[in-house]
Design a protein around this nucleic acid. Structure first.
Lengths: 157, 157
DNA sequence: CGCATATCGTTATGTGACATAACTATTATG
DNA sequence: CATAATAGTTATGTCACATAACGATATGCG
């Protein structure tokens, strides 16, 4: 008698062709690689992607408020608290009171923070050079342009 | 007497120029937008990005093993368990025993699974069309090419 | 053929990036 | 002056990821 559940065929090669038809899938997979390599790159500095980004923004914008940093990073303000706590605990930045607004803090980098930031940026430059090896300037510019336009779709609302 | 900590200057415009110099940053920000829009797109199907990807791969490769699915999705096998559990509980797929290997399961889609998958794919096509509006075919092909090359850097090791 | 190693899927547990709700203190506005 | 808004925080939750370890089973080697 016929088997109600015949043994399925052996899958020897998995096709992800359908997913590959979406740029989002490519972005996800490529970004996974970037993320993993960046994590490795930042580990010697005891930084993660998110604390690195916060530090860079604070070094480049001394005195910015926590709410401004949250906006710049596109994250929720409550999630910033532990990030700032960690950078402050490591003496990389300071929360300074704002005499004109007692609700707010101004975030300023310390000398150690600037120095670590500079070294981390150099390391991240190498990380990017590795991942973009063989990518020409024209291709690079085009990719940035398209990524910018995708990102802009999210802020238009 | 001089103030030991003078009031920092008011930051009126936050510069993220340093971070913008890295393609990884652009990828992160653009992918955040893709992820948020995709989450909205898949919500009516009660799917998340990860369960959607799993479903598509199972529909396209009926009979594949959990280990194969984990490889295809580049995730750890333990993390697959709750994904498969959820899809199975919703009767979108089945875990079928493999007569030739009692350790393994073959993952097969159900009719409901195929149908939901087809509808979800159409919705994701619209999501992508929205995000890629104004992006030409040449630009699109170039972006895919660069993303593929970045992704390939991660598998070369 | 027996045994060591490898594989498959699972359970258990942990981390970190995200989210929302609600709070207090303070400032801005009408 | 009352009310609304803002700044930062605490509390808590979800989910995508990670590793360790386990039992059952398959494989390969001596």
């Amino acid at each position: 008698m016929s088997k109600p559940n015949p043994a399925p065929p052996v899958v020897t090669r998995v096709s992800d062709a359908t997913l590959r038809g979406f740029v989002g899938y490519h972005m996800k997979r490529a970004f996974n690689v970037v993320q993993a390599d960046l994590a490795t790159t930042l580990k010697p500095f005891d930084l993660r992607m998110i604390t690195y980004s916060a530090l860079v923004l604070i070094v480049d914008n001394p005195g910015l408020r926590q709410s401004q940093l949250a906006d710049a990073m596109d994250i929720e303000r409550p999630n910033l608290v532990v990030i700032i706590d960690e950078l402050e605990r490591r003496d990389l930045i300071l929360r300074e009171k704002v005499p004109t607004d007692r609700r707010a803090y101004a975030l300023v980098p310390t000398l150690a923070g600037r120095q670590l930031c500079a070294r981390a940026i150099e390391a991240v430059k190498s990380h990017e050079a590795r991942l973009l090896q063989g990518v020409g300037m024209t291709e690079y510019a085009q990719v940035l342009d398209v990524l910018r336009r995708i990102e802009a779709k999210g802020t238009k609302e």
